[in-house]
C-alpha cells in the first residue's frame, strides 16, 4: 500500500467511490440495447427470408448467406464510420449481434493500418475478436470431445 495522508483503507475508499459513482443510466441503456439488438436480428431474419423464399436456397445455405451479409453490413458501416456512432448509444445492442463481431475486426484493422499492411492490418485484425475465436473453437472442441466420449460407451 502506498503512503498517503488519507485516513482510509483501499477498501473504504473503493466503497466510497462506488457510492459516489453515477452508474450508467441502466434502464435507458437496456431499452436502447433491446431495441437495436432486436432490430438487427429482424434485419437478419429479413435477409434469411429473402435468400430462402425468393432465391430458394436450402435452410443451411440461406443461414450462411445471412451471416455473410450481416458481416458485410457491419464492415461497411464501420468503414463508413457509422457503426461506432450506433455503438455509443446502443452498447450491447450493437456489440452482441454478429455485426458487432465484424465491427471489432474491421475497427482493429483500420486502426493499425498506419503500421503497414502485413504487421499492421494482418497482425492486429483479431486484437478484439481473437478471443472470441479462441474461446469459441476451444469450447466447441471440448464439447466435441465429451460428445465423442459419451458416444463410445
Amino acid at each position: 500500500m502506498s503512503y498517503t495522508k488519507l485516513n482510509m483503507t483501499n477498501e473504504e475508499y473503493s466503497e466510497y467511490v462506488k457510492e459516489k459513482e453515477k452508474t450508467s443510466p441502466i434502464v435507458k441503456d437496456c431499452l436502447i440495447a433491446f431495441l437495436v439488438g432486436g432490430l438487427i436480428c429482424i434485419i437478419g431474419q429479413l435477409i434469411f427470408d429473402i435468400f430462402e423464399k425468393q432465391y430458394g436456397f436450402s435452410f443451411k445455405n440461406a443461414s450462411t448467406y445471412t451471416t455473410i451479409s450481416l458481416i458485410f453490413i457491419g464492415a461497411l458501416l464501420t468503414a463508413l464510420r457509422v457503426y461506432s456512432k450506433i455503438g455509443d448509444k446502443a452498447g450491447a445492442g450493437s456489440i452482441i449481434p454478429i455485426t458487432g463481431f465484424s465491427n471489432s475486426i474491421v475497427s482493429s484493422a483500420i486502426e493499425h493500418k498506419t503500421e503497414g499492411v502485413v504487421m499492421g492490418i494482418g497482425a492486429n485484425m483479431f486484437k478484439v475478436a481473437g478471443p472470441v475465436l479462441v474461446y469459441g473453437v476451444c469450447s466447441s472442441m471440448i464439447i466435441g470431445f465429451i460428445y465423442w466420449l459419451i458416444k463410445l460407451f
Binding site: 453515477k22 457503426y83 461506432s84 455503438g87 450493437s94 471489432s104 483500420i110 486502426e111
Partner: peptide, 17 residues
C-alpha cells in the same frame, strides 16, 4: 485512445465517469 483503450471505430459505449 488506441494505446490505452479500444480501436476508435469500435462501437462501444463510454461510461458517465
Amino acid at each position: 485512445e488506441r494505446q490505452f483503450r479500444l480501436p476508435l471505430q469500435q462501437g462501444s459505449q463510454r461510461t458517465p465517469t
